[in-house]
Structure formats: C-alpha cells, structure tokens
Design a binder for these strands. Structure first.
Lengths: 155, 155
DNA sequence: CCGAATCCGCAGCGATACTG
DNA sequence: CAGTATCGCTGCGGATTCGG
C-alpha cells in the first residue's frame, strides 16, 4: 500500500538541478488513474493463467483437440513429459472441467481422455494464441538477441 | 463422440481375465500417431508461454494496453506486485520486444513504459483470452467445487 | 521516484521405484 | 498400461535494504 504525502505542495519534478535532498522524493500527486477493471486482485485472468502457466497443460490441450487419446498416446505425443506430470496435468484439467476421463477395466487397463465442450472452447482460444506465437516467434527471437547483445549479463 | 469398444488391436489385450503375468504389459504396437506439428519440443508456443507463465507479465501488458504508464503508475495499477517483480517483468517484456522504455533525466527520475506495435498485437491476443476467461470463470469454479467434493484430499 | 542487490521460502517438475 | 509415492533440485517471486 503506497501511502503518499498529503502535501499539497505543487512542487512537481524539477529538472536537472543539483540536489541532495533525496528524502523528499515522494509521489508528485495522487496518480492512481481511474479505470481499474483489471488491476484488482484478479480481473478474471487468474483462473486461466493457472492452466496456462504450467509447462504441460497447453500441450495436452492442443493434443486432445485432435481427438480422444489414451494415456500412453498422450505421453508419446508429448515427448518431454514424464508419467507423473502427465497424470498431474490431466487431473488438474479434469478438475477444471476441461477434460473427461473414461476408464475401461480391461486387463491391460485403458484410459481415454477427451475434451469437454468447455475444453474444446478453451482449445480454440489457445489455438489462436498459438497462431500468434508462431507468427511472431522470430521477431521475439530477434528482439531477445539484440537485447542480450546490448545488455550482456542481464536476465 | 463417445466411441466405445476401444479394443481392437490385434495382438495383446485380453479382457477381464484372471492374470498374474503383469510383466507382459507392454505397448500393444507402435502407437506414436503421426501428426506431430506439436508434440515436438516446442511447437512455437514456448516463447509466448514463458511470458504467459509468470504471474505478472499479462497484467502489465493489459495495463499498458490502456496507454503509456510510468513506473509508479504501473505499480499502483497492479496492487499485488512488488517493486522488484515490476522491474523484472518489464525488463523481460522489453527483452522480448513487447515494451519500450523512455527515461527522463529529471531530478526525481521518471520512466515511461509503452507497448511496441508487437506488444499491442500481443495485447489484443491476450485480451481475447481474458474474455474467454471471464466468460467461463464461473463454470471453472463450479467444476472445481464438484471435483473437490467428490475427490477430497486430491490436488 | 526508479531501480539494483541480497536473502530465502516454496511450488513446479524430473527421476526413480512400486502397485494392480 | 495406467497410476501413486517419495525425494531432490531449481527458479520464481516476496521482503528488505541500499543508491542516485
């Protein structure tokens, strides 16, 4: 909570003056601009971000968007993922109502995963973002290279 | 939709048989289905996901989409964020070419942040996802409640 | 006001082993 | 084949302090 100086002093930033009174550097005025639909704790993004944030959820969604998949097929289609993370990820997606699971009690057990209607809706939204990503990935890479050249040792 | 009778692969699966030879549970066949545009290490999403993953990048983008902001204004508009994470986040966004920074060497220093054209493009893509989030947030919440009721002590 | 530097807890994730 | 349990590492991110 940034409280500020109740000082009404119109003293706004002076420009290039030899100064040592560092302590007086306070907020010039109440500047919390009014428009905060976002900026509140969450503006509704958080729920989605929880799924977008982790490493695997998006990849699982994208794969399931192609159709129903069994556990092993998912694992095979997402090379880097471990058994554990696949079960964890699918379980979280199920919890969020994005994915449904069907277990067939055959002797080598089989489990099918498929998107729910909401999951499909989400998959389309994600696909749009993936398109954006593919379209701009080189521009991002270039920007990063330039930055790393100009600012070595940062980030 | 729901296709049943999943088992048809020729060789292995027996159904509901008293078995103990657990060791023979091997892959039925080479099942790496062919379509892997995604599934490779990254299908181009990773670059974006790096920014979507962390807690603050999206919020900063959304705020900057409203216009140029100084450091303090950003901090005020995003209540939870700390000084450190704001500087870190903005720097990462600058590195990715999403944000530009302008420093005015006044005596109380002033720094303005604004989206680059690419940043604005990204902001629109993100806004679409935020819309989806707002539209479905209650459905997600309900799904989670149901899950937590049925499966206590999980996740 | 803006930012860098330091310390530190904790969640995410991988590796491994075990079960039905 | 599908899933659970346990351990250890790593990096994000919060709190705090210092500096121009």
């Amino acid at each position: 909570m940034t409280h500020l100086s109740p000082r009404n002093s119109p003293a706004r930033p002076r420009v290039l003056k030899t100064v040592t009174d560092v302590n007086s550097w306070a907020l010039p005025t109440t500047q919390t601009d009014e428009h905060g639909p976002c900026g509140d704790d969450d503006c509704g993004i958080r729920d989605v971000q929880d799924r977008l944030g982790d490493r695997w959820s998006v990849l699982v969604i994208v794969e399931l968007a192609k159709g129903t998949r069994r556990f092993g097929a998912l694992k095979a289609a997402i090379p880097g993922i471990s058994q554990r993370m696949l079960t964890v990820t699918t379980k979280r997606l199920i919890r969020d109502g994005m994915v449904e699971r069907t277990v067939y009690p055959t002797i080598p057990p089989q489990t099918d995963y498929r998107l729910t209607p909401m999951g499909e809706s989400f998959a389309r939204a994600v696909a749009d973002l993936a398109d954006w990503s593919r379209w701009h990935k080189e521009a991002v890479a270039v920007a990063r290279l330039r930055f790393d050249l100009d600012h070595p040792g940062e980030l």
